[in-house]
């Protein structure tokens, strides 16, 4: 193929996602031969899987120590000096959560995120700016979607009469279409019957 023809194909928007996907896939598969290993020196390290629940902690798997409103939990962020009340959120439990933790050891997930807990500390405090962005992304896409549906795709004002007329015009204007419809009708019924059996 001549290179010009190839380049012309690249100018069609429809081909671009596919080309992008293809190049991304190639790079991903190259990743399989790259030597990879997890660096054990990480931020916000968590205990081994199931360790806390096996020990029977009431708020497993999110127990990071600390006492409610008095002692901060243990937490290991990048810049501890930028966060003045570090660990307090991790150590905090709402009264309701405290009550639930006293009755059963199996509700740790719910308890430690209501509100407070480690993930909340990261989401709202040490990396709160990320969450602002994430929720802004959410908000923006909903603005786009709801604007489109309120003003266009779901807009009842241009519904009913106009669309019906369009349909009618489309059918009545073209006798050819009508004839085809009739012809195909029979064919389709026959096929449908065959398929049902």
């Amino acid at each position: 193929m001549r290179i010009g023809v190839l380049w012309n194909k690249l100018a069609d928007p429809k081909n671009i996602p596919r080309l992008f996907a293809f190049s991304l896939g190639i790079i991903l598969i190259i990743g399989l031969i790259v030597p990879m290993a997890l660096n054990p020196d990480q931020l916000y390290v968590r205990p081994a899987p199931q360790e806390q629940i096996d020990e029977g902690l009431a708020i497993a798997p999110y127990d990071r120590g600390g006492e409610v409103l008095s002692q901060p939990g243990i937490i290991n962020p990048q810049y501890p000096d930028n966060a003045a009340s570090l660990g307090m959120i991790t150590g905090y439990m709402s009264p309701l959560a405290q009550w639930i933790s006293s009755i059963s050891p199996y509700f740790g997930t719910s308890i430690y995120s209501s509100p407070g807990g480690l993930v909340d500390e990261i989401l709202y405090y040490t990396r709160g700016f990320d969450t602002i962005l994430e929720s802004s992304i959410l908000m923006m896409s909903f603005i786009i979607a709801s604007w489109l549906s309120v003003n266009y795709t779901m807009n009842r004002k241009n519904d009913e009469s106009e669309i019906r007329e369009d349909v009618k015009k489309a059918i009545s204007d073209s006798t050819k279409v009508a004839r085809e419809v009739k012809a195909n009708d029979a064919k389709a019924r026959a096929k449908q019957l065959r398929r049902d059996n």
Partner: peptide, 9 residues
């Protein structure tokens, strides 16, 4: 769609 014959197969 099948019944009305809009699609042919």
């Amino acid at each position: 769609k099948l019944e009305s014959g809009d699609i042919n197969d």
